[in-house]
Simulated assay, not measured.
Amino acid sequence: MTDDLPHPPWQMDWTAEARQDFDAMPADGRELVLAARAELITAPDPYYRGIDADACLPHWITVRPLASTKPGGPHIVDLAGGRGWLIYTFIRRHAVPQITVIEAFWT
């Protein structure tokens, strides 16, 4: 029996504004964003649903819903204790599931 459902690594795309913000970040910010990207695209569920589901993440990354009332909506990845973040959505399409970064920020 084969499993026809998509599996990681997931595709990731950026809005034009998020990509510009990423490109403008200092090198240390870009490195952390790329490390967070690697965690997201390889996660079985990029929304890390459930209690302590993100316990396997490095200590400098936390993932949570942007609005607690919409657990299936946009999520935020807090980086380095709030020095930066990514806001993204995950669309679990059958053919090509995709993560879309809609905002990138670094202080």
Rank of each mutant, 00 (worst) to 15 (best):
M1H: 09
M1S: 11
M1Q: 09
T2C: 10
D3C: 08
D3G: 07
L5C: 01
H7E: 01
P8Q: 00
P9R: 05
W10K: 04
W10F: 02
W10H: 00
Q11P: 00
M12A: 06
M12L: 13
D13E: 15
W14M: 10
W14L: 03
W14I: 00
T15D: 07
T15M: 04
E17R: 14
A18S: 14
R19G: 03
Q20A: 15
Q20T: 15
D21Y: 06
D21E: 15
F22G: 01
F22W: 08
D23M: 08
M25S: 00
P26W: 03
A27P: 02
A27M: 01
A27Y: 07
A27L: 06
D28H: 05
R30M: 04
L32Y: 05
L34W: 05
L34T: 10
A35G: 09
A36Y: 03
A36E: 02
R37N: 10
A38D: 14
L40M: 12
I41M: 11
T42Y: 00
A43M: 03
A43W: 03
A43F: 07
P44Q: 05
D45F: 04
D45H: 01
D45T: 03
G50H: 05
D52P: 00
D52T: 13
A53G: 05
A53L: 02
D54C: 13
A55F: 11
C56E: 11
C56H: 14
L57P: 03
P58M: 10
P58H: 15
P58R: 12
H59E: 15
H59G: 14
H59K: 14
I61T: 06
T62Y: 07
V63R: 11
R64C: 08
L66K: 07
A67D: 15
A67L: 15
S68F: 10
S68K: 05
T69Q: 10
T69E: 12
T69H: 06
K70D: 13
K70H: 09
K70N: 09
K70I: 10
P71H: 01
G73P: 06
P74Q: 03
H75D: 02
H75K: 03
I76L: 10
D78S: 10
L79V: 06
A80Y: 14
G81D: 11
G82Q: 12
R83V: 08
R83C: 07
G84T: 06
G84L: 01
G84Y: 02
W85G: 05
W85K: 03
W85V: 01
L86H: 04
I87N: 11
I87S: 13
Y88R: 08
Y88A: 06
Y88S: 07
T89I: 06
F90T: 04
F90A: 07
I91L: 14
I91A: 14
R93S: 15
H94S: 11
A95T: 08
A95E: 07
P97S: 04
Q98T: 09
V101Y: 09
E103D: 14
E103T: 12
A104I: 03
A104D: 13
A104T: 15
F105N: 12
W106M: 11
W106I: 10
T107G: 14
T107Q: 15
T107N: 14
